[in-house]
Write a protein that binds this DNA or RNA. Structure first.
Lengths: 185, 185
DNA sequence: ATTTAATTTCTGAAATTTTTGAATACTAAA
DNA sequence: TTTAGTATTCAAAAATTTCAGAAATTAAAT
C-alpha cells in the first residue's frame, strides 16, 4: 500500500493540521488517508502505509470512532476489520464541528451558567459577571444556531449557503414577511 | 491583585480550555483575566495574579496581540504598558474565529487547490481527487459564508441570529421573492 | 552619558503528549 | 480445547511543548 506523491502530500498535510483540527498528527494522517482511499483499509495496511506502529493505529481508530468519523466494514470469510469514512465529506465536517462544539464550547457554557447564577458582591465581581454574561449569551446563540442549521434539510442548507451576499437582502425582506401574529421566541 | 474565588475559577477554566481554543494554558488564563478585569493591567500584575513568570507573560502578550485580542493602554507619566481587551466580547469572538480560519482552513484550501489543478493518472488518484474537490468546495463555501457574515451590519446579524427556527420559513419564502431575473452566481 | 525602569529573548529543565512494542485479550475455526 | 489470526492495552521511551529565571535589550529620565 503506497501512496502517490500527491496523495502522500495530502495525507501528511492532514497530519500537520491534525492538532489544529482537534486531534494529533497520527490521527490526522489516518483520517486523511481513509478519506481519500476508495477501499476500506485494515489496521495493518494503515500502519504500513503511514509507517507507524500497530498499537498506535489501534488507538487512533478508537479516537476516530469516538468522533464518529470512520466506520467498520466486514468482508465475509475474512475476520479482519476494514475501516473507511463514516459518511460524506459534509457528514464528516459536521461531525468535527459538533464534536468540537462539545469540547470547546459546552464546558464553558456550563461554567458560565453556574457563575452567573451567583450574586456578585464587589464591584470587580459585578463587572466580571457582566462580561461573563455576554460571553454566555454569545455562546448560547452560536449553539442554538448550529443546532438550527443541523435541523435544516440538505436542500435548504444548499439554498442558504448559495445565498451568499443575498443574505442581506433576504434579511431585509424577513421583517416584512414575519409580521405574522406576535411573539415567536 | 487577587481574584475572587469565582473569578479565579473562570480564569482557571480559560486556562484549561486554552489549548482547545488554539493557545496554551497560560495564554488562555491571561486572556480570561484581561477580559473580566475592568482596568487594564500591567505585565507584572498579570504575572503576580496568575503566579507565572514575567517572561512568560511577555510571550503571552505577544501571542495575544498576534490574535488581536488585546491592546495596549498608556497612562501619561507612567512608562508601564497596560493591557486590556481589544474590543467587545463579540469582537473578540470574531477575531478568534477569523484567526482560526486562517490557521485551520486556509492552508488546507491552498494545498487542495494545487492538488486539484494537477491531472490524476491512476484510478486511485482520481478517486482521491474527487474527495479533495469536495473538501475544497466545502471549505470554500464556509470561507465565503463567514466573509459574508462579517460584512453584515450588527443589526442584520442580530436579526439573523434571533431568527432561530424561523430560518427555514424565511428560506422557503426566499425562492419566491428572489424570482428576479435569472442567474445570480 | 548614565542610571533606572521596563520589556523581550533565550536556554535548559519540567511537564505534557505522543508513540512504540511487547504482553494480553479476544474470537472464530479446527 | 487448542490454535491462529486479529485487536487492544499499557508501561516505558521519545518527542514536543511549556515555563521560569537569567541575560540581553530597549527606552525614558536625569
Amino acid at each position: 500500500m503506497s501512496l502517490s506523491e500527491k496523495n502522500l502530500a495530502f495525507v501528511m498535510h492532514c497530519g500537520e493540521m491534525g492538532s489544529r483540527w482537534g486531534f494529533n498528527r497520527t490521527i490526522g494522517q489516518m483520517c486523511g488517508l481513509l478519506t481519500i482511499t476508495k477501499e476500506p483499509m485494515t489496521a495493518n495496511e494503515i500502519a504500513d502505509t503511514l509507517s507507524i506502529s500497530r498499537g498506535n493505529v489501534s488507538m487512533g481508530i478508537k479516537e476516530l470512532q469516538s468522533w464518529r468519523l470512520i466506520k467498520v466494514h466486514h468482508i465475509p470469510g475474512d475476520r479482519k476489520e476494514y475501516y473507511g469514512p463514516a459518511g460524506s465529506i459534509w457528514d464528516m465536517a459536521n461531525r468535527v464541528f459538533e464534536e468540537r462544539k462539545k469540547r470547546e464550547i459546552d464546558p464553558t457554557l456550563s461554567l458560565l451558567r453556574d457563575n452567573i447564577l451567583e450574586e456578585a458582591h464587589t464591584d470587580d465581581e459585578r463587572f466580571a459577571q457582566q462580561q461573563m454574561q455576554e460571553i454566555h449569551d454569545l455562546l448560547e446563540t452560536v449553539t442554538k444556531w448550529s443546532a438550527e442549521l443541523q435541523r435544516l434539510s440538505p436542500e435548504q442548507l444548499q439554498s442558504l449557503m448559495k445565498l451568499g451576499s443575498g443574505i442581506g437582502k433576504v434579511l431585509d425582506f424577513k421583517d416584512k414577511i414575519l409580521k405574522k401574529p406576535g411573539k415567536s421566541e
